[in-house]
Design a protein around this nucleic acid. Structure first.
Lengths: 110, 110
DNA sequence: AAATATAATCGTAATATTGCGATAGATATG
DNA sequence: CATATCTATCGCAATATTACGATTATATTT
Protein backbone atom coordinates (compact mmCIF):
# COMPACT_ATOMS: atom_id res chain seq x y z
CA UNK A 1 0.00 0.00 0.00
CA UNK A 2 2.16 2.81 1.25
CA UNK A 3 5.67 1.85 0.29
CA UNK A 4 6.50 3.22 -3.13
CA UNK A 5 10.25 2.75 -2.86
CA UNK A 6 11.69 0.74 -5.68
CA UNK A 7 13.31 -2.36 -4.26
CA UNK A 8 15.73 -2.64 -7.11
CA UNK A 9 16.60 -1.45 -10.58
CA UNK A 10 15.03 -2.90 -13.68
CA UNK A 11 16.93 -5.22 -15.99
CA UNK A 12 16.86 -2.54 -18.63
CA UNK A 13 18.46 -0.04 -16.28
CA UNK A 14 21.14 -2.48 -15.28
CA UNK A 15 21.86 -3.50 -18.85
CA UNK A 16 22.13 0.07 -20.08
CA UNK A 17 24.34 1.06 -17.17
CA UNK A 18 26.60 -1.91 -17.84
CA UNK A 19 27.11 -0.98 -21.46
CA UNK A 20 27.71 2.60 -20.44
CA UNK A 21 30.26 1.53 -17.87
CA UNK A 22 32.17 -0.40 -20.49
CA UNK A 23 32.35 2.79 -22.54
CA UNK A 24 33.06 5.09 -19.63
CA UNK A 25 36.81 5.31 -20.09
CA UNK A 26 38.58 7.12 -22.96
CA UNK A 27 41.02 4.23 -23.27
CA UNK A 28 38.22 1.79 -23.99
CA UNK A 29 36.63 4.12 -26.51
CA UNK A 30 40.05 4.51 -28.11
CA UNK A 31 40.52 0.74 -28.26
CA UNK A 32 37.17 0.34 -29.97
CA UNK A 33 38.07 3.17 -32.33
CA UNK A 34 41.21 1.29 -33.34
CA UNK A 35 39.10 -1.78 -34.04
CA UNK A 36 36.64 0.34 -35.99
CA UNK A 37 39.29 2.05 -38.08
CA UNK A 38 41.37 -0.92 -39.11
CA UNK A 39 40.16 -3.34 -41.69
CA UNK A 40 42.26 -6.07 -40.23
CA UNK A 41 42.03 -7.41 -36.75
CA UNK A 42 44.70 -5.94 -34.58
CA UNK A 43 46.15 -7.43 -31.47
CA UNK A 44 49.27 -6.03 -29.83
CA UNK A 45 49.06 -3.10 -32.22
CA UNK A 46 46.48 -1.64 -29.89
CA UNK A 47 49.12 -1.24 -27.23
CA UNK A 48 51.26 0.80 -29.63
CA UNK A 49 48.34 3.08 -30.40
CA UNK A 50 47.52 3.89 -26.80
CA UNK A 51 49.44 5.88 -24.19
CA UNK A 52 49.24 2.96 -21.79
CA UNK A 53 51.26 -0.04 -20.79
CA UNK A 54 50.60 -3.52 -22.11
CA UNK A 55 49.13 -4.74 -18.85
CA UNK A 56 46.76 -1.80 -18.60
CA UNK A 57 45.56 -2.22 -22.16
CA UNK A 58 45.06 -5.91 -21.49
CA UNK A 59 42.87 -5.05 -18.52
CA UNK A 60 40.72 -2.70 -20.60
CA UNK A 61 40.43 -5.37 -23.27
CA UNK A 62 39.26 -7.79 -20.61
CA UNK A 63 36.52 -5.42 -19.50
CA UNK A 64 35.35 -4.91 -23.06
CA UNK A 65 35.35 -8.67 -23.50
CA UNK A 66 33.32 -9.16 -20.31
CA UNK A 67 30.85 -6.56 -21.52
CA UNK A 68 30.67 -8.59 -24.71
CA UNK A 69 31.55 -5.73 -27.03
CA UNK A 70 34.66 -7.41 -28.38
CA UNK A 71 35.95 -10.90 -28.90
CA UNK A 72 39.45 -12.23 -29.26
CA UNK A 73 40.47 -15.06 -31.50
CA UNK A 74 43.79 -16.74 -30.87
CA UNK A 75 45.94 -16.43 -33.94
CA UNK A 76 49.23 -18.12 -33.34
CA UNK A 77 51.12 -16.40 -30.58
CA UNK A 78 49.06 -13.25 -30.80
CA UNK A 79 45.39 -12.59 -30.35
CA UNK A 80 43.15 -11.04 -32.92
CA UNK A 81 40.60 -8.74 -31.37
CA UNK A 82 37.55 -7.45 -33.07
CA UNK A 83 34.13 -6.05 -32.40
CA UNK A 84 31.43 -8.54 -31.49
CA UNK A 85 28.71 -7.72 -33.99
CA UNK A 86 25.84 -9.23 -32.02
CA UNK A 87 26.57 -7.45 -28.79
CA UNK A 88 27.48 -4.24 -30.59
CA UNK A 89 24.06 -4.21 -32.25
CA UNK A 90 22.38 -4.91 -28.95
CA UNK A 91 24.16 -2.05 -27.24
CA UNK A 92 23.37 0.24 -30.16
CA UNK A 93 19.71 -0.69 -29.96
CA UNK A 94 19.55 -0.16 -26.23
CA UNK A 95 21.09 3.29 -26.41
CA UNK A 96 19.16 4.35 -29.49
CA UNK A 97 15.77 3.33 -28.12
CA UNK A 98 16.49 4.81 -24.73
CA UNK A 99 17.62 8.15 -26.07
CA UNK A 100 14.54 8.22 -28.26
CA UNK A 101 12.27 8.09 -25.23
CA UNK A 102 12.78 11.79 -24.91
CA UNK A 103 11.29 12.46 -28.33
CA UNK A 104 8.27 10.38 -27.41
CA UNK A 105 7.51 12.44 -24.34
CA UNK A 106 4.17 14.16 -24.62
CA UNK A 107 4.87 17.22 -22.56
CA UNK A 108 8.35 18.43 -21.90
CA UNK A 109 8.85 20.61 -18.87
CA UNK A 110 11.05 23.46 -17.66
CA UNK B 1 59.55 9.12 -37.10
CA UNK B 2 59.46 6.09 -34.89
CA UNK B 3 57.17 6.97 -32.04
CA UNK B 4 53.63 6.00 -32.90
CA UNK B 5 52.29 6.13 -29.36
CA UNK B 6 49.30 8.35 -29.01
CA UNK B 7 50.14 11.14 -26.60
CA UNK B 8 46.56 11.58 -25.58
CA UNK B 9 42.97 10.78 -26.36
CA UNK B 10 40.94 12.73 -28.88
CA UNK B 11 38.24 15.16 -27.82
CA UNK B 12 35.67 12.84 -29.31
CA UNK B 13 36.93 9.95 -27.22
CA UNK B 14 36.88 12.03 -24.07
CA UNK B 15 33.43 13.42 -24.77
CA UNK B 16 31.93 10.03 -25.47
CA UNK B 17 33.54 8.50 -22.39
CA UNK B 18 32.22 11.35 -20.27
CA UNK B 19 28.65 10.84 -21.42
CA UNK B 20 29.02 7.12 -20.89
CA UNK B 21 30.36 7.68 -17.40
CA UNK B 22 27.33 9.76 -16.52
CA UNK B 23 25.16 6.83 -17.60
CA UNK B 24 27.32 4.14 -16.03
CA UNK B 25 25.29 3.68 -12.85
CA UNK B 26 21.80 2.11 -12.68
CA UNK B 27 20.70 4.80 -10.26
CA UNK B 28 21.44 7.53 -12.77
CA UNK B 29 19.68 5.66 -15.54
CA UNK B 30 16.74 5.19 -13.16
CA UNK B 31 16.70 8.91 -12.35
CA UNK B 32 16.62 9.78 -16.02
CA UNK B 33 13.86 7.20 -16.53
CA UNK B 34 11.79 8.94 -13.90
CA UNK B 35 12.29 12.23 -15.69
CA UNK B 36 11.41 10.57 -18.98
CA UNK B 37 8.27 8.91 -17.66
CA UNK B 38 6.68 11.81 -15.86
CA UNK B 39 5.06 14.61 -17.73
CA UNK B 40 5.65 16.95 -14.89
CA UNK B 41 8.96 17.92 -13.47
CA UNK B 42 9.71 15.95 -10.37
CA UNK B 43 11.96 16.95 -7.56
CA UNK B 44 12.04 15.10 -4.26
CA UNK B 45 9.77 12.50 -5.81
CA UNK B 46 12.87 10.98 -7.37
CA UNK B 47 14.11 10.05 -3.91
CA UNK B 48 10.88 8.14 -3.24
CA UNK B 49 11.26 6.21 -6.47
CA UNK B 50 14.79 5.05 -5.80
CA UNK B 51 16.20 2.61 -3.25
CA UNK B 52 18.67 5.21 -2.08
CA UNK B 53 18.94 7.89 0.55
CA UNK B 54 18.26 11.53 -0.17
CA UNK B 55 21.93 12.47 0.00
CA UNK B 56 22.95 9.73 -2.40
CA UNK B 57 20.27 10.68 -4.91
CA UNK B 58 21.38 14.29 -4.61
CA UNK B 59 24.91 13.25 -5.48
CA UNK B 60 23.76 11.36 -8.57
CA UNK B 61 21.68 14.34 -9.59
CA UNK B 62 24.76 16.51 -9.26
CA UNK B 63 26.75 14.26 -11.55
CA UNK B 64 24.00 14.28 -14.16
CA UNK B 65 23.90 18.06 -13.87
CA UNK B 66 27.67 18.32 -14.31
CA UNK B 67 27.43 16.08 -17.37
CA UNK B 68 24.80 18.52 -18.61
CA UNK B 69 22.12 15.89 -19.13
CA UNK B 70 19.70 17.47 -16.67
CA UNK B 71 18.96 20.88 -15.29
CA UNK B 72 17.25 21.96 -12.11
CA UNK B 73 15.00 24.95 -11.76
CA UNK B 74 14.29 26.25 -8.29
CA UNK B 75 10.57 26.14 -7.64
CA UNK B 76 9.85 27.43 -4.21
CA UNK B 77 11.42 25.25 -1.59
CA UNK B 78 11.85 22.35 -3.95
CA UNK B 79 13.78 21.94 -7.17
CA UNK B 80 12.29 20.92 -10.46
CA UNK B 81 14.60 18.66 -12.39
CA UNK B 82 14.26 17.86 -16.02
CA UNK B 83 16.21 16.65 -18.99
CA UNK B 84 18.36 19.22 -20.74
CA UNK B 85 17.19 18.92 -24.32
CA UNK B 86 20.31 20.42 -25.91
CA UNK B 87 22.78 18.18 -24.15
CA UNK B 88 20.51 15.16 -24.47
CA UNK B 89 20.47 15.60 -28.23
CA UNK B 90 24.21 16.04 -28.30
CA UNK B 91 24.77 12.84 -26.34
CA UNK B 92 22.30 11.00 -28.53
CA UNK B 93 24.10 12.18 -31.66
CA UNK B 94 27.50 11.21 -30.32
CA UNK B 95 26.41 7.70 -29.44
CA UNK B 96 24.37 7.19 -32.59
CA UNK B 97 27.12 8.30 -34.94
CA UNK B 98 29.74 6.36 -33.08
CA UNK B 99 27.81 3.13 -33.03
CA UNK B 100 27.13 3.58 -36.71
CA UNK B 101 30.84 3.50 -37.48
CA UNK B 102 30.62 -0.25 -37.36
CA UNK B 103 28.11 -0.36 -40.21
CA UNK B 104 30.41 1.82 -42.28
CA UNK B 105 33.34 -0.55 -41.96
CA UNK B 106 34.39 -1.94 -45.28
CA UNK B 107 35.68 -5.27 -44.17
CA UNK B 108 34.70 -6.85 -40.94
CA UNK B 109 37.00 -9.40 -39.48
CA UNK B 110 36.92 -12.54 -37.32
C1' DA C 1 65.42 -27.61 -26.02
C1' DA C 2 66.49 -22.66 -25.72
C1' DA C 3 65.32 -18.16 -26.98
C1' DT C 4 61.88 -14.99 -28.47
C1' DA C 5 57.35 -12.88 -28.87
C1' DT C 6 52.71 -12.12 -27.32
C1' DA C 7 49.26 -11.49 -24.06
C1' DA C 8 47.14 -12.53 -19.45
C1' DT C 9 47.50 -12.32 -14.61
C1' DC C 10 49.38 -11.05 -10.02
C1' DG C 11 50.60 -7.79 -6.56
C1' DT C 12 50.43 -3.28 -5.22
C1' DA C 13 49.66 1.72 -4.88
C1' DA C 14 47.02 5.79 -5.90
C1' DT C 15 42.79 7.55 -6.79
C1' DA C 16 37.69 7.59 -7.62
C1' DT C 17 33.14 6.11 -6.71
C1' DT C 18 29.36 4.95 -3.98
C1' DG C 19 26.55 5.37 -0.03
C1' DC C 20 24.94 7.10 4.27
C1' DG C 21 23.98 9.98 8.38
C1' DA C 22 24.44 14.43 10.05
C1' DT C 23 24.45 19.09 9.16
C1' DA C 24 23.60 23.40 6.80
C1' DG C 25 21.01 26.56 3.76
C1' DA C 26 17.04 28.20 1.68
C1' DT C 27 12.12 28.68 1.35
C1' DA C 28 7.67 28.17 2.69
C1' DT C 29 3.93 27.93 6.40
C1' DG C 30 1.78 28.65 10.84
C1' DC D 1 9.70 34.63 14.37
C1' DA D 2 9.49 29.58 14.91
C1' DT D 3 8.71 25.43 12.52
C1' DA D 4 8.52 22.39 8.83
C1' DT D 5 10.02 21.05 4.23
C1' DC D 6 13.25 20.33 0.69
C1' DT D 7 17.80 19.89 -1.16
C1' DA D 8 22.91 20.42 -1.05
C1' DT D 9 27.05 19.56 1.20
C1' DC D 10 30.30 17.59 4.63
C1' DG D 11 32.69 13.83 6.77
C1' DC D 12 33.58 9.32 6.66
C1' DA D 13 33.87 4.30 5.48
C1' DA D 14 33.72 0.64 2.16
C1' DT D 15 34.57 -0.64 -2.26
C1' DA D 16 35.95 -0.17 -7.18
C1' DT D 17 38.83 1.58 -10.73
C1' DT D 18 42.99 2.64 -12.90
C1' DA D 19 47.73 1.99 -13.80
C1' DC D 20 52.13 -0.17 -13.72
C1' DG D 21 56.03 -3.47 -13.29
C1' DA D 22 56.98 -8.14 -12.69
C1' DT D 23 55.75 -12.62 -13.56
C1' DT D 24 53.49 -16.41 -15.82
C1' DA D 25 51.58 -19.00 -19.71
C1' DT D 26 51.42 -20.10 -24.45
C1' DA D 27 53.07 -20.32 -28.95
C1' DT D 28 56.64 -19.62 -32.35
C1' DT D 29 61.15 -19.58 -33.84
C1' DT D 30 66.03 -21.01 -34.13
Amino acid sequence: MGASKLTDYTNEEITLARYAKALSHPARIAILNVLLQRNVCVCGDIVDELPLSQSTVSQHLKELKIAGLIKGDIEGASICYCINETEWSKAKEHFTKWFQLYDEMKSKCC
